[in-house]
């Protein structure tokens, strides 16, 4: 679920940070810049792992800060495809079940990836697995706050960096930008599935 990503960046250390050691100043600057942020097509950055290389620092005319090219490795949350994860159910809707890992909330188990046969209970606003025991079916509710085991089946990155005025996009790009605005909020979304034996609420499979 976590990977190491090698990155390279120019770190600017302002003069009032010169009193700290360069290593520590760089470390703090990198954590400040990346922690809890999603890097496009990379994943959610958690914390700095180590610094592998610090090149010479430069001071440019007109700016008292030092600029240093640094190579470093960062811990990034990016589950691989088909990985099994355990999370908590945050909310349910007709669309599916939203799952949270605590530090990462944008996980959706869509309605077509539920255990079969499942239905959405309008009165309770919960998803229900109609489990067939052989003699009659049993309703298994997916309550909010319950722990759920799911398989990661898809991931989507949406570029949320500021773009030019919308009027500039035309023709083929038009459809694309519309899609982006619809999902503007989450730059990184995971799609999960609970449609196999062993997946779903942990309590369903505990006793067997």
């Amino acid at each position: 679920m976590f990977t190491l990503v090698e990155m390279k960046d120019t770190v600017r250390v302002p003069p009032w940070r010169f009193k700290t050691k360069l290593n520590q100043a760089v470390e703090e600057a990198l954590n400040m810049k990346l922690a809890n942020k999603v890097v496009h097509n990379v994943g959610l950055c958690i914390s700095l792992w180590d610094i592998t290389e610090i090149a010479d620092s430069y001071i440019f005319p007109g700016d008292g800060s030092s600029h240093t090219i640094v190579k470093f490795r960062y811990v990034v949350f990016r589950p691989f495809m088909d990985e099994i994860l355990v999370g908590k159910i945050r909310s349910s809707s007709k669309e599916g079940v939203h799952v949270s890992l605590g530090f990462f909330d944008d996980i959706l188990i869509p309605s077509d990836a539920m255990q079969h046969p499942s239905r959405f209970d309008e009165a309770e606003q919960l998803w229900v697995w109609k489990y067939d025991t052989g003699e009659g079916s049993h309703d298994l509710f997916m309550d909010i706050g319950e722990e759920v085991r799911f398989r990661v089946v898809d991931e989507t990155f949406v570029d949320t960096s500021p773009t030019g005025p919308e009027s500039s996009s035309s023709g083929v790009d038009g459809a694309e930008t519309q899609e982006v605005t619809a999902e503007k909020k989450s730059p990184f979304t995971l799609i999960g599935a609970v449609s196999e034996p062993g997946l779903g609420l942990l309590t369903w499979w505990n006793n067997t």
Partner: peptide, 24 residues
């Protein structure tokens, strides 16, 4: 900022946990 290698290594939960504990 540029990404040199996207998937340099996979980390186990235990490794991440011990790093974060140190950080804390």
């Amino acid at each position: 900022m540029e990404v040199v290698q996207e998937n340099a290594a996979m980390l186990s939960n235990y490794e991440v946990l011990s790093l974060l504990k140190d950080n804390k």
